[in-house]
């Protein structure tokens, strides 16, 4: 087992890198439907930024900003967003996840609405993937006890 080492260089580089990584993750999620990337990749990068913060600082430091209860809520919320957009299409009279029908309730033409629906799906996938990655690392590094860990 290694102990927590408060290293100034690592913490300084982490403090500069984490916002850039998170902006890049949001860029990947937002441009997922017409360039490489998407919800899964962007969510992985977003989760990796929190994991970097956990490694460089402390798990308690991240938990103060991103509590465990909120994390678990986010896992369910992303899946709910995905299912809700799909079910909304179903309610409006089209197939599941057929976003074109959303132009009945949104003020735009069907082509733009289709891109908007894809963006909603990507956001849901990204939220779930980042929260699940964070939860997996939290469980791995604390033996699932959610106490103060040593990583």
């Amino acid at each position: 087992m290694i102990r927590l080492i408060e290293d100034l260089h690592i913490q300084f580089v982490c403090r500069i890198m984490v916002p850039l990584i998170q902006f890049f993750a949001l860029y990947v999620i937002a441009h997922g439907h017409y360039s490489p990337g998407g919800g899964f990749q962007g969510g992985c990068i977003l989760g990796a930024s929190f994991i970097l913060m956990m490694i460089a600082y402390d798990i308690e430091y991240v938990k103060k900003r991103f509590p465990e209860k909120f994390n678990t809520f986010m896992v369910a919320f992303g899946v709910f967003l995905y299912a809700a957009i799909g079910a909304l299409c179903l309610i409006l009279g089209a197939e599941y996840l057929n976003y074109g029908i959303l132009h009945k309730i949104l003020p735009a033409d069907p082509v733009k609405v289709r891109a908007l629906g894809t963006l909603g799906i990507e956001i849901g996938v990204g939220i779930t993937v980042s929260a699940v990655m964070l939860s997996i690392f939290l469980n791995l590094s604390t033996f699932g006890k959610h106490e103060k860990s040593e990583v």
């Binding site: 087992m1 290694i2 992985c44 989760g47 490694i55 791995l140 590094s141 033996f143 990583v151």
Partner: peptide, 13 residues
């Protein structure tokens, strides 16, 4: 990115 971090987190245990 992610799986290397998971491996390292598992090796510490």
């Amino acid at each position: 990115g992610i799986s290397t971090a998971f491996f390292i987190g598992a090796i510490y245990q």
